[in-house]
Design a protein around this nucleic acid. Structure first.
Lengths: 203, 203
DNA sequence: ACTCCTTTTCGACTGTCGGTCGGTTTTATT
DNA sequence: AATAAAACCGACCGACAGTCGAAAAGGAGT
């Protein structure tokens, strides 16, 4: 009863590492089972397919993301800070740069897309709660909050996805759009400037 | 000199049809060469790889898109109508529903993504020209036009991508966001309501 | 210890796919 | 007719996801 659970968890852990470092498409089942020291049949005893395994790996990752987001929500921060903090928490982080790079390599589109979709469904309600607080406090003035939050998420994930380096103009416009979409006073989101990594380390 | 050109064009045409109807990943090189009545070696005489062929197929598609967009730009329409017209022209069209459905099937992520990226780079400058006219006419009031146009494109392609049916609230918010991002007076883009297919044919 | 059943493990095998290669035929050139 | 270049051929290859029948391993009951 216990043996199986543990093996499955180990396999997911191993696969997670390999997917993230070498990419999903570039990691073969053969490589996974070799790293795990098991036979092909054993792998397919635990997973119906490679893609189904990916779903479970993603599920693991999202749990961690949700925990981080909830933590930010409970923290002692202003509403705009909470919102930006949560968005930042799901963006590529400095220490996880390799993960993010792997995620945006073309051969990882499937994984990236799956994560994105599920992450949005997870994060939109959380962020919406924060935004509703903002409306109550008079900081924001808008209806259809989840839809607006979703748009901001779409923009941030697309603009800051790591392979098209964002210019100061992009950041300015993003801040402006965020404020206007939420019906905030100009400057409310200006503090983003200080968070964003300074320009792009041109070279 | 002519023979090769023609064959290559035929192959691209055949592949285009198959990629669009059955998906890129689901179309094997063997199927393409069988449909074309040629041998494997001949195929690889014309294309370095299956993916490189996809690039060329996409190039073909984009030429058509660019022509459509330019036509709208020259048409006798108001600036907002031009902008919306161009955006609509690159969205799934009623008669091409199958194409769009194919494009959004998960197995076509690669194709979809490549098209999207290249389409944006193609369309942003065209739309920006229209938007600049709008600023000159006093309809819009904003800086960083290409960046703003790009955001609107990102939103429209994500919100109206065919598999998450858009609700009236989404449309309202999109119109609102578009007006605000471009610095237009409320109502300027309201006519979009009349263009969007009525709600979602629920069933 | 022995049977019986379930859970877990094994690895050879299959079918598909993208891509290669050496060689042949066609076409244009002189 | 000779020759070079362009176009074409299909058997073959390695990589890959996934299958399957059978063999261990692990109890539970006797």
């Amino acid at each position: 009863m216990k043996k199986g659970e543990r093996r499955k968890r180990d396999l997911l852990q191993i696969a997670y590492g390999m997917f993230v470092s070498r990419g999903y498409e570039n990691t073969s089942v053969d490589e996974i089972i070799e790293a795990a020291g098991i036979a092909k049949g054993t792998y397919y005893y635990y997973f119906q397919s490679k893609e189904q395994m990916l779903e479970e790996v993603i599920g693991m990752m999202l749990e961690a993301e949700a925990r981080k987001a909830e933590a930010v929500l409970q923290a002692d921060l202003s509403v705009p800070e909470k919102i930006v903090g949560i968005i930042a928490s799901i963006q590529p982080e400095q220490q996880e740069r390799t993960i993010d790079e792997a995620l945006h390599r073309p051969e990882n589109l499937l994984m990236h897309d799956k994560i994105r979709k599920r992450l949005f469904d997870l994060i939109v309600p959380i962020l919406s709660r924060a935004a509703e607080d903002g409306v109550r406090e008079g900081l924001f003035d808008c209806d259809h909050i989840p839809e607006r939050i979703r748009m901001i998420l779409i923009l941030s994930s697309d603009l800051f996805d790591g392979h098209n380096p964002y210019t100061p103009a992009v950041i300015d416009v993003f801040i402006d759009a965020t404020e206007k979409v939420l019906g905030a006073k100009p400057g409310t989101m200006g503090f983003i400037h200080g968070l964003v990594r300074p320009a792009q380390d041109v070279q």
